[in-house]
């Protein structure tokens, strides 16, 4: 990370501060763990890593994290697609916007737990019900963000493409989507953060695998080390997706719009 010009200078490189902060967190964790009378309540970092390594070697960790990631991916993709379509429709048509605004408010404020429980009751403890529940939770968020983006589309450019009779698909790809890119990115970020959390609850309540399911099992056995190990593995996966997927896309979009 290079420092922006004019930013206050710090003694060490930014990397070092990040490393120090991780070490400090581990030290704090270790101190708290050794301070407690019962080590089972808060296992030390080492014990946690041991539990994680054990799960990794047995293949369980990858299997369950993989199952969770797959659900996240499917629900996220569906919700982005449906939410974007709805958002654009609402943003472009005042009639639809007025009509469905109330529905959107309900959707935005519907507790995730209610959707999940209802989906399981109505559609059974199935994979489809689980994905549906997560998707329903995220669609309103995406739609609300995309609606604002669609409202801000430049009318002058639409007039131009209209008089020149540019094909609709070409208008979408070259004129509309570039303008929606920041909204899509914001929706992806907000939506992903939401999806992670809801998928775990869905798994905890009614799936036979996934990180959420595992956490419930560990909860029954008071296996706190494994809970922490799975959480860390999961956080690792989320950060990896952020760094390896979202940030590069974001940079690319930024280049494209500024360039």
């Amino acid at each position: 990370m290079s420092q922006p010009a004019g930013a206050p200078t710090i003694g060490l490189g930014a990397h070092w501060y990040r490393l120090l902060s991780v070490i400090a967190l581990l030290a704090l964790w270790q101190a708290a763990a050794s301070g407690l009378a019962d080590p089972a309540l808060l296992p030390s970092p080492l014990a946690t890593f041991e539990a994680g390594y054990e799960a990794l070697r047995a293949g369980e960790l990858l299997y369950h994290v993989g199952a969770t990631l797959a659900r996240v991916a499917v629900a996220f993709g569906l919700a982005m697609l449906i939410g974007t379509a709805i958002g654009i429709a609402l943003g472009r048509s005042p009639v639809l916007d007025h009509f469905f605004n109330g529905w959107l408010v309900i959707g935005l404020n519907l507790p995730a737990l209610v959707t999940i429980v209802l989906c399981y009751i109505w559609f059974g403890l199935s994979e489809a019900a689980a994905i549906l529940a997560v998707t329903i939770n995220k669609v309103p968020t995406v739609a609300a963000i995309l609606r604002e983006g669609a409202k801000a589309l430049d009318p002058a450019l639409f007039e131009m493409t209209r008089v020149f009779e540019v094909k609709p698909l070409r208008v979408l790809a070259r004129v509309v989507l570039p303008q929606l890119a920041p909204s899509l990115m914001a929706a992806a970020r907000a939506g992903l953060a939401l999806t992670w959390k809801i998928v775990l609850v869905v798994e905890l309540l009614g799936r036979p695998n996934g990180v959420g399911f595992q956490i419930r099992s560990f909860f029954n056995f008071f296996d706190i080390a494994s809970i922490l190990a799975y959480s860390l593995a999961f956080i690792g996966a989320v950060v990896a997706i952020e760094v390896l997927l979202l940030q590069p896309i974001d940079r690319q979009l930024g280049k494209w719009r500024r360039a």
């Binding site: 002058a156 450019l157 007039e159 131009m160 008089v163 020149f164 009779e165 070259r174 004129v175 570039p178 494209w256 719009r257 360039a259």
Partner: peptide, 14 residues
């Protein structure tokens, strides 16, 4: 088929 030069250029910025 129309060809139009608007009063502003109306080029697509990106």
């Amino acid at each position: 088929r129309l060809g139009v030069v608007f009063q502003e250029p109306r080029l697509v910025p990106w």
